[in-house]
Write a protein that binds this DNA or RNA. Sequence first.
DNA 1: CCGCTTGTTGGTCCCGTGTGTGACACGGTG
DNA 2: CACCGTGTCACACACGGGACCAACAAGCGG
Lengths: 349, 349
Amino acid sequence: MPDPTPDPHRDVRPTLEAVAARAGVSRATASRVVNGGAGVRQPLVDQVRKAVEELGYIPNHAARTLVTRRNGAVAVIIDEPEFRVFSDPFFSRQIRGISRELNAHDAQLVLLLVEGSGDFDRVTRYLAGGHVDGVLAFSLHTDDELPAIIRRFRVPTVYGGRPQHAARGQDDPELPYVDCDNRGGAREAVRHLVSLGRRCVAHIAGPRDQVSALDRIDGYRDVLPDAAEELVVDGDFTTEGGARAMTELLDARPDVDAVFVSNDLMASGALRVLRERGVRVPEDVAVVGFDDMASVAEATEPPLTTVRQDVEGMGRLMVRLLMERLNSGTGAWPDSVITPTELVRRASA
Amino acid sequence: MPDPTPDPHRDVRPTLEAVAARAGVSRATASRVVNGGAGVRQPLVDQVRKAVEELGYIPNHAARTLVTRRNGAVAVIIDEPEFRVFSDPFFSRQIRGISRELNAHDAQLVLLLVEGSGDFDRVTRYLAGGHVDGVLAFSLHTDDELPAIIRRFRVPTVYGGRPQHAARGQDDPELPYVDCDNRGGAREAVRHLVSLGRRCVAHIAGPRDQVSALDRIDGYRDVLPDAAEELVVDGDFTTEGGARAMTELLDARPDVDAVFVSNDLMASGALRVLRERGVRVPEDVAVVGFDDMASVAEATEPPLTTVRQDVEGMGRLMVRLLMERLNSGTGAWPDSVITPTELVRRASA
DNA sequence: CCGCTTGTTGGTCCCGTGTGTGACACGGTG
DNA sequence: CACCGTGTCACACACGGGACCAACAAGCGG
């Protein structure tokens, strides 16, 4: 049953003017109290606070934004036309980290999913409209238009994952990013396999248009510069793609005794194929994945040895860098950060 | 290399005033043109449009919101303290549908992740602050405070999934929801197992504080009202939980010859246990899941027969209902919608 | 006692748009 | 020729709140 005596104040939201009137001060003073209370005597501060409480005053966001030119919102742009994102817990975890850290900064998260070039107009209009103070972008593809748009409109941005231009060796200080040490993590994984005495270590790679996949290939080659071409097989970061790549690999090189797989999903597909073919893991073939996605790596048979990256922490870090940039009056850009990885040993290697 | 002769207009965003001046009309006329151009002669419309183009004018969102009291944004509130959300593609897919439909309506998506009671204050402030025109809420738990808050502030809302109070039989027209036919889908799954000649059909249920899990139990009981208590085993919607439940079930009732599992993740865990115990699927035990999450159901061994729900379509539908409500001057509430399910037959049953 | 400094406070303007209210021109009608 | 309805347009106000600036009081040193 609805409230029988509805409060008339409920529908008409009180304004700062009303608070000031009730507290018996001017609107300017009320405003000062609401924004921290600096330069106002304690008794008046208390009066205003009381009036705010009694009236249930909540500042009008639009009015405040209009004058401060700040709106306390950050856009998260994910450019991922493939279906993969939505079956990959990676983004969800990163967004969780981002959400938590944004909450700590009293900022809101506006989610922009980009699918196809047509959407870029929309994003452009949105950014140009000044709806958000900054952007957290996930630029996954090498042919991405996003960096150009962001540069053009000078929107403070932090990237998740090393953007392509940086991968070309042209680190742009105006496009800071947060990424895990893909190359170093890959090196550690391959070294681990080598240290187990494996002689023929293969690599199932991710899609070549993703920087993280390329970096992991580089890490593999750092340790095994002389590995045969055919030992590196392309995959697409999906379970099925991993299974196909493993099949291809076994057919081409029956002597393979270890595989470093570029992510956990593909590794789970690879494990399935190995099991179907009666190949023992890790006795005959040792397998190491990448990501340490709990729902996958702990559920495989056998449980997957893999390279952990702290996805949620990376999300939080992105927010911190962006806030640093927004709150530094100087407009100085923060440095990019590469977070460490850690080899998690389970049963598969 | 940055533009050598940076456009001075770039940093100072043009205002409607500037557009009007350039077009030689008053600001009021320029405003009318920008908002559709009704009641303005064609030649003037063209002049203003040209000025907008030349200046690269983009309306100031905050100023517009201040006067129209509409801000073209919708909050998506997900109250899920458990880690599960983030390893479950369910939400991602629904959000994808929501995002697409919001784009079609030129509205933005503000993501609010709620974790724990402390966060409700934040959400309350946010909703009361009038940051969004409406809310899409996923109320998963029976002890949810969200409906009360939303009712209190009279924010137009559409629920994803039948809220608890509706499950108690008190359908509140002011809290419309979109849900799939959990009970009907469960019935179809169980009937299918019965039609295969199975005599001892068990059910691995989801957590009892989630309405969808309860509805699926009801569907199971609709078909098998006399099933023994011990044939219904509790799970938690995770792969591991499914494995535990299956183990428990096999120990208690070795004669079981079919299982309807409340979601695909648990079904994949159950299949793993069956395989480990050397139980053949579907010969010895037939298995049906729920959700038809492609990444899971197609990847299990054997591929999973399951009940499909159109998650993305449900997301889109939620947005349509909300927009209907927002755009109807009458403030009338749309009706709740229950979308159909479909049994997808693969190899497991 | 006077002038100056420091600390508070209120008045006022401005942020950028939407919209109601008139004014004006035009053409048709009596 | 006077009157009036219709279509266009400009003016001005309002939306809610931040920030500058002048006014004022109190305190202090000379």
